[in-house]
Nucleic acid binder design. Structure first.
Lengths: 348, 348
DNA sequence: CTGAAAGCGCTTACAG
DNA sequence: CTGAAAGCGCTTACAG
């Protein structure tokens, strides 16, 4: 058995006695009315027959376009990001683009490494969740104008850039107001110690509403790296001990909520009798938990759609500088059993 | 401000008055004792200074190696696969490889599409969870010997190929035996209707032990597409109604367990009083659920490590035909509160 | 309507 | 110890 050699445009040219140029035109649909119907048919049939596919590496080298998008997520194993990734993947593939995923772990150095790893490749676009303290790097990247840059899940108000984000300020305000309206007097906030916009806005939204209602700001901010560790849980535990008045908790991320639920369980605090719970980001877990946990759900499908379609459009438009793509989507408050006052609970 | 042009090896050559060949040798560490220390130093310093990085597309075109691995998972948004993906990613990057992820959704057509999408690119390796009915395609792919092919999460016993899998038969036997030993008389099995090896082996393990203990086989197999749907839940519900004797349930996947837990909740069946529960694959959810759910946990880190290191080794060895990489890892039974007989429950 | 030729940025025999 | 040149597989001005 001979080793099946990869067939090239040159092989086709020889076989059919037609020039490489003509074949390339036909493949790239630049044939139009320049090339005779018969030749087109002949070439197309032959390509079909032998299953020829142009070598995309050569195409990339020649054109400078790789049909590749890098999605640099905070953590690709987080259900929120992996759900986004999966939805984007499909649409990207349909449009002839591949996506390479990676995780920054919210670390500046890691993000820098990844960036330099991909910048020498001809990546057409970056969809990126910048880590802590990455504003200046993002500015550089955007100004280079070498590829489309789409920022996800956060934005910089002092930078002209494309982004898709949740309306975190509004969501957080609504969440806090909802808890106050439900009759809870002392709403506590468990957030992330971080300079990125969603973290900031979720805290501000909470503080704004709490202050407007003459309540005290009772919040604790957990460093990113401690969220899933024993240290993080300890911080939440101490926060609760320091603030025994708290009758309601708003968590800024699903990971914080999970650590928080563990603490509440360990401390035998009942939900919602002792303390009601509301968290950002929905997960299977929250629906199944006893009691089920109320959430501000991010519209995952919409976010993914805006992200990838926005990126593809910018790619098509050859990202002329004028085009800016900025979408702010609303969160959805899903009321479950963790945030009802049991006495007034009229749910199923 | 001038547009910063990408610097090429030719530019360096001109700038330094040294031939392209010599520079290429130095970059690729093929300098050895062929090139004078001074020249090497000069070139390396200059490269450092201007931040030159070789164009990887050109390297790929020339060498046929792209330093790219495709990980074709069943579903990249499933926590099991995304955890595996993330661990592999890091090791791959350290070794100069990128990973492209995609999801087959366990659909043959989708997997075929993806395969043809990536085959024309110079992908160096496939790490793949083949979908239903993909044996013959895998045979073709393996025999082509164009790239390293590593199969994950399943294997074909009539095919010579590289794989990393869980010992599903053993795990399932241990799980079933454990439930019987805990005093449950009628263990039911909720599995997947599928021809892939883990599904088969998990069912067989259950059947084997149940038969050996003179018990009846009470199992239901849910089609892959129905697992998360109302139809799937209905099938589980009816299965339970048809088999009221069941006092213990073994779920073959975490998704099945989640649907199962929903049904148990809806039917107000208490765990473990009315029915005890044990499932394959661990998740946050199972630890936090009330009661916490016992699981057969797959060793995610080990699996990811074997997968990527095995693949990288095969890549290094230029995958001579003789090299076969086959790893079967043991599952770990984690006993939680869902599988104790309440009366004998001596846990915390 | 079609083709010969340059060039994308590398690597690697080959020559000296 | 170093360099000129071919070639990986394409696309695309340019010519006729």
């Amino acid at each position: 058995m001979r080793k099946k050699q990869k067939i090239s445009i040159k092989d086709i040219s020889k076989e059919l006695g037609i020039s490489i140029t003509t074949i390339s035109f036909i493949i790239n649909k630049k044939a139009e009315n320049k090339i005779s119907k018969e030749v087109i048919k002949k070439v197309e049939d032959y390509i079909e027959e032998v299953g020829y596919k142009p070598n995309s590496t050569a195409q990339t080298l020649r054109t400078g376009k790789s049909k590749t998008i890098v999605f640099m997520a905070e953590d690709i194993s987080d259900p929120f990001f992996s759900a986004i990734a999966k939805e984007m993947e499909e649409i990207a593939f349909e449009n002839g683009y591949k996506i390479i995923y990676c995780s920054t772990e919210n670390k500046k150095e890691r993000a820098l490494e990844l960036l330099s790893l991909f910048k020498d490749r001809q990546v057409d676009a970056f969809i990126i969740t910048p880590p802590e303290g990455f504003r200046d790097e993002m500015e550089k990247l955007v100004n280079e104008k070498k590829q489309v840059v789409m920022v996800f899940d956060r934005y910089y108000n002092d930078l002209e850039h494309n982004y898709v984000v949740l309306d975190n300020l509004d969501s957080s305000k609504r969440a806090t107001r909802y808890l106050l309206d439900s009759g809870y007097q002392n709403v506590g906030f468990v957030g992330l110690k971080s300079d990125i916009s969603p973290t900031q806005e979720r805290l501000q939204g909470y503080q704004h509403v709490v202050a407007a209602n003459g309540q005290k700001d009772r919040s604790v901010l957990i460093p990113f790296d401690d969220v899933k560790t024993a240290e993080g849980k300890e911080m939440i535990r101490e926060f609760l001990k320091r603030n025994p008045q708290i009758d309601s908790l708003l968590f800024a991320t699903n990971s914080l909520a999970i650590s928080g639920l563990k603490v509440l369980k360990e401390e035998s605090l009942r939900i919602p009798d002792d303390v009601s719970v509301l968290t950002f980001d929905d997960r299977d877990l929250f629906e199944l938990y006893s009691p089920s946990i109320s959430v501000i759900s991010q519209p995952v499908s919409e976010l993914a759609n805006e992200l990838i379609k926005g990126t593809l459009n910018l790619l098509k438009s050859d990202f002329k500088e004028s085009v800016k793509f900025q979408k702010v989507l609303k969160g959805r408050l899903i009321e479950r059993n963790s945030s009802h006052l049991i006495s007034e609970n009229n749910s199923i």
